[in-house]
Design a protein around this nucleic acid. Structure first.
Lengths: 162, 162
DNA sequence: GGCAGGTTACTCGGATAGCGATTGTCCGAGTTGATCTGG
DNA sequence: CCAGATCAACTCGGACAATCGCTATCCGAGTAACCTGCC
């Protein structure tokens, strides 16, 4: 029950993309440089974001990634699911139907109570992640991150965008 | 982000243990037989339950596993954590501090907003699992499982306990 | 009939291989901006 | 000086290994019931 490291990277990258000026794109190489992450492996995850339709890409010089929708319309859940998949954490294999006292399928009309409880918990987790969007994450960062780092990041960004 | 199969097995086993008469124990072999699970591998997970203090064990003939506490005092979360570990799904590696615009540690007083959001979601998930206890799972099963299977299971149990 | 000792069968517990998914790396296809040349 | 074609650099995207944790299996230590023989 461990989340892929890629999720953390993807969320940070998306939040950063959400913070930069409209219509400007940032390449995978620049993103990996900013967070000091392995370039190729990060690219793999950015690919997943692209496939999921969260970011748009443009090739060639001055190309790169940019959010496909306004930050307020991309939730944390979207990013998590793009990287980690939409499969439920808990998968019911219906072991209650097996064994010596198992019965034919027609006797199981209600879903397994254990699975139901698990899925309920998973549902509230998803709902909580859906509440958070990239816009609010950026806003939160602007409030809580030291001005020193904000300025430093801004300088770096200007150099990166040319 | 997939939960170990062992979790499903462990929860079913615990629920079954919660349903059987006081002071009676069921061996790993019998449990694996009842659910048609691989004996040795199930034993590994039952071991984890034992280490976590959720079940007590007794050796020798007529020995086996029995709940260490009343069913109402064992939550679904207890079982999940016993098998899957207590580590948070999301682990913040503080990548915001790295890279060219990262600052010395003293500039980061507030925790990373992204990690905070993740942990909040994880917290509501845990809370939801904590709400459910083995007693209510047994009760739910008594209501929703077909009487045919309940009788069948009861017969099997009488034979197993001797 | 009751009791003590040995035996036996059954139990859990930890240590040991196998495999699949996540992690990590590589190179190729495509596009864009810049450059160079000719008018 | 300007327009067009060429070129080169930079981009993403998918295909290919390596490592780690989960899955699966085995065997040994210990214990309690049982059986047998004796009192």
């Amino acid at each position: 029950m461990k989340m892929s490291d890629g999720v953390e990277w993807a969320v940070h990258c998306c939040t950063f993309l959400a913070a930069l000026p409209n219509e400007s794109a940032l390449s995978g190489a620049r993103l990996s440089e900013f967070f000091a992450l392995p370039k190729d492996y990060l690219a793999k995850h950015l690919q997943a974001l692209s496939r999921a339709g969260l970011v748009e890409t443009s090739k060639g010089p001055k190309g790169g990634y940019r959010l496909a929708r306004p930050p307020a319309e991309i939730s944390l859940l979207d990013v998590v699911e793009a990287i980690d998949g939409k499969n439920p954490c808990f998968q019911c294999t219906e072991i209650r139907r097996q064994g010596p006292s198992g019965q034919p399928d027609r006797h199981y009309k209600k879903p397994c109570g254990i699975a139901a409880a698990m899925w309920k918990a998973e549902s509230v987790w998803r709902k909580e992640l859906k509440k958070v969007d990239l816009g609010s994450l950026v806003h939160e960062a602007e409030l809580n991150v030291s001005t020193l780092q904000q300025e430093s990041a801004y300088d770096w960004l200007c150099k990166a965008l040319g």
